[in-house]
Nucleic acid binder design. Sequence first.
DNA 1: ATGGAAATGAAAATCATTTTCATTTGTGCT
DNA 2: AGCACAAATGAAAATGATTTTCATTTCCAT
Lengths: 122, 122
Amino acid sequence: MSRSNPRVVSVLERAGGFASAQEVYRLMQREGESIGLTTVYRSLQSLVNDKIVDVLRREDGEAIYRLCGDTHHHHHLVCKSCGDTVEIEGGAIEKWAKTMAQEFGFRDVGHTAEIFGLCPKC
Amino acid sequence: MSRSNPRVVSVLERAGGFASAQEVYRLMQREGESIGLTTVYRSLQSLVNDKIVDVLRREDGEAIYRLCGDTHHHHHLVCKSCGDTVEIEGGAIEKWAKTMAQEFGFRDVGHTAEIFGLCPKC
DNA sequence: ATGGAAATGAAAATCATTTTCATTTGTGCT
DNA sequence: AGCACAAATGAAAATGATTTTCATTTCCAT
Ligand SMILES: [Zn+2]
Ligand SMILES: [Zn+2]
Ligand SMILES: [Zn+2]
Ligand SMILES: [Zn+2]
């Protein structure tokens, strides 16, 4: 069931930042790669399952994907103009989440935390 | 342009936790309230603009809304079973975001940070 | 009462994502 | 090579949330 299509991985590598399924599809088309949109969706989903790719949501709700260097839990500093992304540690967040959960008696907790802004180049 | 429909506000008040536009609509129908789905969407949007309502995204991308007690910047501790929500301060997060942005030269930054888990009752 | 602005909602349009299903491709076996 | 069967592919249709259009209704000030 390994649908981690290497051609999709390659596009994500070159993209660098986060990209939506539709964008990945358009990119591949522009480069003359023949692929179906369905396959792009399936490949991305598979990569997310394998924790090779991270997925976030744009403000409008569209899912965006990124091939991350670290397969362990981490957070992101994303440029909202060019999409450039830095993977960052969330030490303070992990602690904060744990503390808050404890304080209010919540169990089995997870969290999300991302930072959006303009990178030095933009 | 104040489309902050009081009937929609009332439903959100009773709902307590986060609810999607479709859910708000269904709730009002069940209670015999006559309202159009379009109006529900417009009212929620207006409430978000006025910072009276917070909006998050479910994992599937659907937008969910909540009438929050504090109109200032804050974060949430959400029960993924019953939807019960606690508004929490993010002192540590604010600092973390600022520090990270500075370290990598990002300007004009914002952030998201929410905690999901099971509340004491669930 | 009258006129114009704002609000409303039904229906259509949009758009990302998923599902269906027929076809193609890959792999091991003879 | 020839065959069988599983996995992968993709076009087209279906789904579902959200937005847009546009005609009608409700409000308000004069
Ligand atoms: Zn990442
Ligand atoms: Zn974390
Ligand atoms: Zn809130
Ligand atoms: Zn914050």
